[in-house]
Amino acid sequence: MSATTERTARRVLDALRRDPLAVGGTVVLVLLVVVGVAGPWLAPAGVNDVDVDQMLRPPSGAHPFGTDELGRDVLSRVLVAARVSLQVGAVSVGIALVAGVTLGLLAGYYRGWLDSVLMRAMDVLFAFPVLLLAVAIVAVLGPGLLTAMVAIGVVYTPIFARITRAGVLSVREQVFVRAAVSIGASDLRIMRRHVLPNIAAPLIVQTSLSLAFAILSEAALSFLGLGIQPPAPAWGRMLFDGRGFVTDAWWLGVFPGAAIFLTVLAFNLVGDALRDVLDPRQLTLAEARRSTP
């Protein structure tokens, strides 16, 4: 890509390096990706190796995270489930990003009735509680991994559409867009070459934040039994299955819960750090405190 992109990338990396929280978040994310890719090989046992002699054993040398009610190794299940979580996050946010950016571009660029129709539709989607909407979509399409990803993608589309539209509305008034029109550039070319690159920063930030919420949503759907179907491991599903043993076998809930917590926290830390660098108009809390007398 161009020199501007390279320079921006370097600036972002420099800024992230100086922020210890962002470094921590990045390290966790890198580990998570490694686990997501290599989970099945890292896992000490098979995810569905039932061992009735080893049911509900607390953490030990043989089973560092203990075993569940079927004697399956919790560590192995947590490691393997990372892939599903990342996959759901990536695919659902990918759906939301593509759909939201497309709708937001059309609405913001053409305005008029198209804008009204698209954005009112987004408002309707936005008005539903996230989980309720996802449950409704799953109820229509039937439970499963693909449905969960589509449902979460639909749920997060309005936020991308809104961010994109807001950016387009300000960029399309810029003289360089009028200059491109005066040259004879097509609408598609103007949107792709001039508008989109100039609104990329807030979209990147929103993507990293949405990844966290998408993973959380998947856990919630799986907890409700509407996401990944057993016996495939998913963090939310593991929480659900362990809820009956909370008092006797804390490890069934704590380890998958900690995995969700760490993942979401890492995405949020990186997202916040990216926002500070790429979207300087939005003050961080620390800066806001400093600027108030």
Partner: peptide, 18 residues
């Protein structure tokens, strides 16, 4: 057939393009 030169050259050039 008709080209335009704008008042503010900074604003009329896309900052992200060479």
């Amino acid at each position: 057939h008709v080209a335009m030169v704008f008042q503010d050259p900074q604003a009329s050039l896309d900052p992200r393009r060479t």
